[in-house]
Computed example of a mutant assay.
Amino acid sequence: MYSFRGDPAELLAGHDRMLALLPAGQLELHLCVQTEDGIAVLDTCPNRQVFDRFSSGPEFQELVAAAGLPKPEIRRLGEITSYVLPPGTTT
């Protein structure tokens, strides 16, 4: 989970800019939630090693900066054990 603190409206606009910078189809499960003090982004990775490499790497830092977002607080939530998708949705 990536927590971005600040004005939610500005952060949501930055999140939209960040999504526009990503190649189509790169995200598998990605949620953005407005919180009382900003936004929280829940984003999945194939495994812990990919998450650790991505979240601490220069590509992620450059992506966040290019979108005009502040440095997030990064928190591992754990391993996904199951999820439900609407009928007809593919992964």
Rank of each mutant, 00 (worst) to 15 (best):
E79Y: 05
S82D: 13
G88V: 02
E36H: 11
R17M: 10
Q61A: 15
R17Y: 08
K71E: 13
L21A: 15
Q26K: 13
Q61L: 09
T44W: 00
G14F: 00
G68F: 02
T91K: 08
L31Y: 10
Q61F: 07
G78K: 03
H15M: 10
P70W: 09
R76F: 15
L31K: 10
T91L: 14
Q34H: 09
K71D: 07
M1F: 07
L12A: 09
E62I: 00
T91W: 06
V64M: 03
L27Y: 02
Q49V: 06
L27T: 12
E73P: 00
A9Y: 00
G57M: 05
G78D: 05
A67Y: 01
Q61N: 12
L42Y: 08
A24I: 09
A66W: 02
R76E: 15
P86V: 04
V84I: 14
D37N: 08
E59Q: 14
D16A: 15
D37T: 08
L85K: 14
Q49K: 12
D16R: 15
V84L: 15
A67P: 00
R76N: 11
F60S: 03
S82L: 14
V33Y: 07
A66L: 00
S82E: 13
Y2T: 06
E59L: 13
E36S: 10
E73Q: 11
P8T: 10
T90G: 09
F4Y: 09
D52T: 12
G57Y: 01
Q61S: 14
A13Y: 05
D43E: 15
E28G: 08
V84D: 04
F51G: 01
T81V: 14
M1C: 10
G68C: 02
D16F: 06
R75G: 02
L21G: 06
G78I: 03
L29P: 00
F4N: 00
I80G: 07
Q49A: 15
K71N: 01
T89S: 11
F51W: 09
G38R: 03
H30E: 06
G38K: 00
F54T: 08
D16W: 07
T89L: 08
A65K: 15
P86K: 13
I39M: 02
L69S: 01
L31M: 07
P72H: 02
P8K: 11
F54K: 05
L22K: 04
H15C: 05
M18N: 04
L29R: 13
Q26M: 13
P70E: 06
R76P: 05
L11K: 02
R48Y: 00
S82Y: 09
L77K: 00
E59A: 14
L69Y: 04
L12Y: 05
S56H: 14
P8L: 06
G68S: 04
G57H: 07
D7C: 03
I80H: 02
A24Y: 03
V64A: 02
S82F: 15
T35N: 12
